[in-house]
Amino acid sequence: MALATREVIGILTDNLRLRGSVLPVPARRATRWAREFGLPRGGERVLYTGTMYHIVPYTERLVRLQQRLGSSRLAGLVPLARRLNRLVNGMPLVARPTSEERSEYERVPANVAQLLLRAGVEFGYLYEDDLYTGVLAYDLGAEDVVAAHAKRIAGIFYKYGVREVITIDPHTTTMLRSVFPRFVEGYDVSVRSYLEVLAERGLPVEAPLAGDVVVHDSCVYARYEDVIEPPRQLLAAAGLQVHEPANSRTMTWCCGGPAEALYPEKAAAVAAQRVGQLREAANGVQSECVTMCPICLVNLRKAADGTMAFRDISEYLLEAAKARS
C-alpha cells in the first residue's frame, strides 16, 4: 500500500479511536451555534449535526497542506507525524481555518435550528455529545473502529433517552439511519433529515424569494437515502424556480469530494465536470447553485473558482422563512 494512503487512513482512524472524530474540532467551537437558542440537553427528539459542517473547513486546510507536501521530502515525515499525533492531537497545529473560512459552515446548524423552530418542531441538542459519526473512516474501510464508535454514539442516545434524530447533512443521515443498525444490536432510533421533516410540516414562508437556482443532488441523499423530492418541494415553496442539471435526482453526478482525502487531483477533475453540467443548466440565466451537503459545497465552489455561486439550501430556506425587516 502506498505510504501516503496507509498513513493518511491511519491518522484519521487513530483520531476517531482516540478523540471521537477523524478531525477533532474543539467541542466549544462545534457547539457555539446553539447558545442563542437555549436548547434543552437531550430529550426524545434531538437535532444532530455530527459536526460535519464544522469539519469541512479543517479538511480543506489539510488537503491544501497535503497538496503542498506532495511528493516532497517532507512527505516522508508523515509516518512520524502519525506517531506523534497518537500522543498529542496534531490537528490544531496543522489545520487552522480562519474565522471567515469557518463562518458559512458554522452558520448551517443555526439555520436549521431556526427553520425547525419556525415550523413548530420541538427538539433538544446533545452539545458536546453531538459526535462525528465516523463516516470518512467507514468509507475508507476502517469498519472495526467505526463499529466501536457507533456503539459509543448509540450509548449516548440511550443515556439521553433519544428516540428520534433530525440530521442536517446526508453523510450523518446515512450513517445513523442505514449503517449504525448493522453495528449496534437493538438500535431503535428514527432518523430523518431536516429536509424531510420540513417538507412534511411545510416551510413557514414569510418572505417568498424570487429567482432561479440550479439544484445539485448529493449522491448520498439521492442514491443512498432516497431524499430527492423534499429539497425540491422546499425550494419551490420558498418561491424559487428550480433548474435540473444533465445528471440529476437518482443519476446525480458526484462532486468528487469523497476522493479528496487521498486523491485531491481526481476529486478536482470530477468536480470540474459537475460544475460544467451545472453551468449548462443555468443556461445563461442569472442563477446560483443550491447544495445540501458541506462536502459538495466546498468542492464545487473550489472547482467553479468564482464562475458560479454556490450556497447551502438552508440559507435560501431561512431567507424565505424570515420576515424581511
Binding site: 474501510g141 449522491c219 437518482t250 458526484c254 476522493a259
Partner: peptide, 30 residues
Amino acid sequence: FSCLLCRACEASCPAGVHITGNIRVLRRWL
C-alpha cells in the same frame, strides 16, 4: 481507494450488484 462510492454505477447496474459494497470489502481487506 479512489472510488467515490457515489453509486452511479449501482443505479444503472442491470444485475443489481452491490458494487460499492464490494469496493468497501476490498478496502477492508487491504
